[in-house]
Simulated assay, not measured.
Amino acid sequence: MPTLNDYQGMAALSICESLLLAMNDQKLLSQSAIVGILQDAANAHEHAAGLDSEPSAHLAVAALINGIISGGNSVRRP
């Protein structure tokens, strides 16, 4: 059963994706800048995993973000 933290994480992801899409639609950020933001976030978690005694959460977050980047989702429109 999902926990409150699961719901908070899903809400945060949805809000952030919506903000990135809106910034792209309003031409405040380019697609490449948005992908760069996502890459920076993934890299930060990959680095943090190396510093944490239990790296699995950081690695899971990095994998999720990398999946968003490579998945061709709505952030990466043609």
Rank of each mutant, 00 (worst) to 15 (best):
P2E: 11
L4N: 05
N5D: 10
N5P: 11
Y7N: 15
Q8T: 12
G9F: 03
G9K: 14
A11P: 06
A12M: 03
A12V: 02
A12Y: 05
L13N: 05
S14P: 01
S14C: 05
S14Q: 08
I15T: 02
I15Y: 09
C16P: 07
E17G: 11
S18V: 10
L19G: 12
L19T: 04
L20N: 02
L21C: 09
L21G: 06
A22K: 15
M23F: 07
N24I: 14
D25I: 04
D25Q: 07
K27N: 09
Q31G: 13
Q31H: 09
L38Q: 07
L38C: 06
L38N: 09
L38I: 00
L38S: 07
Q39N: 05
Q39E: 06
D40W: 03
A41P: 08
A42P: 01
N43M: 06
N43A: 00
A44Y: 06
A44L: 10
H45R: 08
H45V: 06
E46S: 14
A48K: 15
A48T: 01
A49K: 01
A49H: 00
A49F: 01
G50K: 01
L51Q: 07
D52Q: 04
D52M: 05
S53Q: 04
E54K: 02
E54V: 10
E54Q: 13
P55N: 04
P55G: 09
S56V: 09
S56C: 14
S56R: 06
A57H: 05
A57Q: 04
A60W: 10
V61D: 12
A62G: 04
A63Q: 08
L64Q: 10
I65Y: 00
I65H: 11
N66P: 13
I68H: 03
I69E: 13
S70Q: 03
G71V: 03
G72L: 03
N73R: 13
N73T: 11
V75W: 04
P78W: 13
P78T: 07
